[in-house]
């Protein structure tokens, strides 16, 4: 059975990527199971999606613990513990990373045990935000080596048809470019084995102690947590205020911000980038169009 895990941020199209690959497998004659996994759905939050494919019926369900292929659409997720990008990766696991840095850098940084590949520069460059899902699915299809190019195209048509021909074409260009770019690694991902008794150590179950009621009640006793969590790290796009255009209306952007991340100080709006998740609602609402959406990557590159 093939077990593939896609990691990305809410809004990057990982659910779409998993469905593109799932449908491609399905059209190639496989039994398939694909599903996204997330908490309360939020743009920018770490999410993952998975695909299982096999020639026989699939009985496994839920999280993939031992992936054959891990696709990471956003390298900023690697160090985020809750994203669990590296979970279950072993020497047979291929990791495909969308990153501006080299595969060598990441291999060394992570001491990665298996094959670590990056989306080739031209594909990565073309993997504009809106198409990164298609790019990842295209590259993954080639790495698996069992999905023909035209089957990938047919799957993409089927999955995205509702969005119109133009959207299909642009995604198709990205997906096929990524498919072609991974030619030299075609088929490098193998099917993992089932977890049999021979490699399943007994679970370390525990007896739960009887804890006092105030510890065992699921309660948070202060509002400190939301401040401590830097949700600004979820941002893919950054809202940037052009104060020359801002007409000091003092309330529209701050009122619409669902995260209370815009404060008005002396009639001037200020964005708290530690907690702005990049939903871009302020960009859409600002009456004089004084807020621009700038890809976060530009800021990290500028810093570097």
């Amino acid at each position: 059975m093939y077990r593939i895990r896609f990691h990305g941020r809410g809004g990057q199209g990982m659910k779409t990527a998993s469905r593109l690959l799932g449908t491609a497998f399905f059209l190639a004659g496989y039994q398939v199971q694909d599903a996204p996994r997330y908490g309360a759905e939020r743009r920018g939050a770490p999410i993952f999606a998975f695909v299982r494919a096999a020639k026989a019926a699939i009985f496994e369900r839920g999280i993939i613990r031992e992936p054959d292929l891990v696709v990471v659409a956003d390298d900023s997720l690697v160090p985020v513990p809750m994203a669990g990008v590296l979970q279950g990766a072993d020497p047979h696991t291929v990791m495909l990373l969308n990153t501006g840095e080299s595969a060598e850098t990441w291999r060394h940084r992570l001491n990665y045990p298996g094959t670590l590949l990056t989306l080739p520069a031209e594909a990565a460059e073309r993997a504009e935000l809106r198409f990164v899902g298609a790019t990842c699915a295209g590259a993954a299809a080639r790495l698996l080596g069992v999905i023909p190019r035209e089957t990938l195209a047919a799957a993409l048509h089927q999955e995205l048809a509702a969005h119109g021909e133009a959207v299909v074409q642009r995604n198709l260009d990205q997906a096929l470019a990524a498919f072609d770019a991974m030619a030299e690694h075609a088929g490098c991902v193998g099917e993992g084995a089932a977890v049999g008794l021979d490699r399943a150590p007994a679970p370390a179950w525990v007896e739960l102690p009887v804890d006092p009621a105030d510890a065992a009640a699921a309660a948070i006793h202060a509002g400190a947590t939301s401040v401590e969590v830097r949700t600004g790290l979820w941002r893919i796009l950054r809202p940037v205020i052009d104060y020359a255009r801002c007409n000091r209306c003092w309330w529209v952007c701050s009122e619409f911000c669902p995260d209370s991340a815009i404060k008005v100080v002396d009639g001037r709006p200020e964005i708290d980038y530690d907690h702005c998740k990049g939903c871009m609602i302020c960009v859409a609402q600002c009456p004089p169009h004084a807020i621009a959406a700038v890809p976060e990557r530009q800021f990290s590159e500028a810093k570097a």
Partner: peptide, 27 residues
């Protein structure tokens, strides 16, 4: 009767409780 719950899971919960405990002191 046996609850399927491992040492690691309990460790994770203890970590969450430790944070909540600090918050209680802060509050």
């Amino acid at each position: 009767p046996r609850l399927l719950f491992t040492e690691n899971e309990l460790r994770e919960v203890r970590k969450m409780q430790a944070i909540a405990h600090v918050e209680r002191k802060e509050a």
